[in-house]
Design a protein around this nucleic acid. Structure first.
Length: 258
DNA sequence: TGTGATGTTGAATG
DNA sequence: GCATTCAACATCAC
């Protein structure tokens, strides 16, 4: 699930549950997703610390610690967090959990283990090392248009590239193409200025709406592609037919025959 | 049983 | 240096 709106929802959940509490210990069941140290070291670094805030950029959530360091939570394809007290509520694929002194814990669940957890002493150095583009909901229209001028290639590849723009993933990229009625394989160097502005406006509208709905997709409008990712679907305006193909290396549902 | 899945990275190629 | 393609990562669900 985790694209920008989902990670935004995780952030709100994290802020509402995990801040300003002493971490009594960290239980690490599987340290595969902790990428820059082993589980014991990670637990050692976090013990007796507390989280004081968080910062999200794209799909990256940085948890701020009271010593000025950060913990990166990147959810990969299947990451999730759950705050609970009863051990019976432990997520099935919990890889580690921050155990707070109030008896509750924040478990990090991740069946596929594609998540990336890092203990960071220098947040900015890490972001610079990626490098990570501006957040898709914080970039200005002027900067977005200027960025587009410097790139070429397929629209969907651009939207998915986190170095250019951070936060849009496979499903929201398809949603943007669907709602703008611009083909995901369109070459960005051939888009008109109006089309470029339309993409920006649509991206803002879609991501803001999803954030507002806390990424609860069942509340998404019927005229979104979201629940119609099925070949053969014809939108209400009768423009095109939904087709499935691989574009920019990812499974893509798009309107064919525009 | 085989296939594909909301992400990222690194290697190879053009 | 860019853009593109593909394999790899690991597990589950259909």
């Amino acid at each position: 699930m985790p694209e920008l709106p989902e990670v935004n929802t995780f952030q709100r959940y994290f802020d509402a549950s995990a801040l300003q509490q002493r971490i009594a210990r960290v239980d690490v069941h599987d340290d595969k997703i902790i990428r820059n140290m082993d589980g014991a070291s990670f637990a050692d670094r976090l013990q007796d610390r507390s989280f004081t805030g968080s910062y999200r950029r794209g799909k990256y959530l940085f948890a701020h610690l009271d010593n000025g360091h950060h913990v990166l939570l990147h959810f990969g394809m299947t990451g999730d967090i759950k705050y609970y007290e009863d051990p019976l509520d432990r997520p099935r694929h919990e890889r580690f959990a921050f155990v707070f002194e109030n008896g509750f814990q924040l478990g990090f669940d991740d069946p596929r283990k594609f998540a990336r957890i890092l203990y960071l002493e220098d947040l900015q150095a890490y972001i610079d090392s990626l490098p990570l583009g501006e957040d898709a909901l914080r970039i200005s229209e002027a900067d977005f248009l200027a960025l587009l001028q410097t790139k070429k290639g397929q629209l969907k590849a651009f939207l998915l590239n986190q170095q250019h723009l951070a936060g849009v993933g496979n499903l929201y990229a398809d949603e943007i193409c669907y709602q703008t009625r611009i083909h995901p394989a369109a070459r960005i160097e051939e888009l008109s200025l109006d089309e470029q502005k339309l993409i920006f406006a649509s991206m803002q509208q879609i991501l803001n709406y999803a954030v507002e709905k806390r990424a609860y997709y069942k509340d998404y409008p019927e005229d979104w592609l979201w629940q119609w990712r099925v070949e053969g679907f014809v939108p209400a305006d009768g423009r095109g037919v939904v087709k499935k193909a691989t574009i920019a290396g990812r499974t893509t549902y798009f309107l064919d025959g525009l």
